[in-house]
Design a protein around this nucleic acid. Sequence first.
RNA 1: AGAGUUGACCAGGCAAUCGCUGGCUCUUUUGAGCGAGAGGAAAGUCCGGGCUCCACAGGACAGGGUGAUCGGUAACGCCGACCGGCCGCGAGGUCCGGGAAAGUGCAACAGAAAGCAAACCGCCGCGCACCAUUCGAGCCCCCGUCGUUAUGAGUGGGCGCGGUAAGGGUGAAACGGUGCGGUAAGAGCGCACCAGCAGCGGUGGCGACAUCGUUGGCUAGGCAAACCCCACCUGGAGCAAAGCCAAGCAGCAACCAGAGGCGGUCCGUCUCGUGACGAGUUGCGGGUAGGCUGCACGAGGCGGCGAGCAAUCGCCGUCCUAGAGAAAUGAUUGCCACCGCGCCAGCGCGGCACAAAACCCGGCUUAUCGGUCAACUCUGGGG
RNA 2: CGGGGCGUAGCGCAAUCUGGCUAGCGCGUCUGCAUGGGGUGCAGAAGGUUGCAGGUUCAAAUCCUGUCGCCCCGA
Length: 120
Amino acid sequence: MTSFRFTKELRLRSQADFDRVYAADHFAADGVLVIRGVANELDHCRLGLSVSRKVGNAVVRNRWKRLIREAFRLAQHDLPPGLDLVIRPKAGAVPNFDAIRRSLPQLAARVAKKVRQNRN
RNA sequence: AGAGUUGACCAGGCAAUCGCUGGCUCUUUUGAGCGAGAGGAAAGUCCGGGCUCCACAGGACAGGGUGAUCGGUAACGCCGACCGGCCGCGAGGUCCGGGAAAGUGCAACAGAAAGCAAACCGCCGCGCACCAUUCGAGCCCCCGUCGUUAUGAGUGGGCGCGGUAAGGGUGAAACGGUGCGGUAAGAGCGCACCAGCAGCGGUGGCGACAUCGUUGGCUAGGCAAACCCCACCUGGAGCAAAGCCAAGCAGCAACCAGAGGCGGUCCGUCUCGUGACGAGUUGCGGGUAGGCUGCACGAGGCGGCGAGCAAUCGCCGUCCUAGAGAAAUGAUUGCCACCGCGCCAGCGCGGCACAAAACCCGGCUUAUCGGUCAACUCUGGGG
RNA sequence: CGGGGCGUAGCGCAAUCUGGCUAGCGCGUCUGCAUGGGGUGCAGAAGGUUGCAGGUUCAAAUCCUGUCGCCCCGA
């Protein structure tokens, strides 16, 4: 049976991890999310969130983070493996769970393609 | 029935599945089970306190804050009651409300004048005899002269001196109001009533204050959210405080004998003890970015009884109820509430606020869909 | 957590400390003249709830209180 648990091993938790992602500078975006990614040495993906104060007040920011985490949890086995992803909301977008679930795998695939091209 | 005032409270509910963060138990690698898991404002960070570290003999002055009275409180700039001004028919609301008969200062424009009073126009008296006009024969006496363009008198204007503040007009504001007397004209100049002030006394109240009597003087302007005066309060920093453990690195310079430290300043006080090291302080540089404590039993919640108008307090019983560090409550459904719209009248669709702890607590302020309850007021109708 | 600053015309700034004077200046905008047309030039005009709400005062952009938004600094 496949596990959909979401533990601390699946998250980016240090400033160094975030710096690695920003230094690689592979990103993809649509009307809902902006994703940056870089390859890690693991067999699964890890998630980092960046939701600034300009997105809204504390309730809106928490809403975004929870919806993105939930989408990542449910989609974790459908994503290209071995990526560290930093996700932030697109400026002006409103938090909607269905839109995030559709957007996340597509953008992750595009980031994975860019990472492979850059490696070659 | 309608219109309103004030206060208290709720913040959709019950389940299912997949997940998240602490706690306990089991397993002792994965994990499993049980139970807990945001608010009335958690917000803004505007006040106050607890707690921790630093400083501290004491005093004075600065600086900052508060401002009727009495009470509540750990404390407050908060709360309650009460007093006063203003608003409302009323229930109530609101102002916070010390001092301008200590001093300095400010008031554009207009106006004579903007502050201890003064006097532009005006009114009144006296003087001059310059102008106009009316009357028409003269003067204390004598002599002379003048003769209707003289002289004198009256009226009006003018000039000078003085009295006055009733009236005029300006302004946000002009030194009580009305009436009678009084006067050359006037004026608290005198009197009566009213408004208002100060002193003294009585009564009620802990008090602010209210009220009554009496005496005095007739009026004392506004702004202190201008400086200021008075009374009271007031060390600094903040949980990234602070303490412990582990890991790791590299030190350098300046200051030190009459000098240094001591809240913003001063009085004063403290430390060191004859010259260098160390310590210390300051500055520059280097290393670390891990863990634990602080950290949730507290001015605590709920219920009852009692004291008090109330804020609040006392006693008894009972309960333990979030605690992270890339940061925990979400997703998908079902049923039932509430609101709106549509129609085939019980179905469909849509909506369901403001907003999320980060050391803790007491307040204040601000945001907020909708709903419940209580007390009271006014108006209309009926009995 | 602590501290500081700023909101005035479409834009950039004065006047705020010390309350009163027509809320002013530059760029921009509009109209007219000159040109075949445009730029330039000349002449003239419009444009402001002084972020918002209360209060003090005769009078508030200015003083006081609350509130909203933005920016910066330190730990």
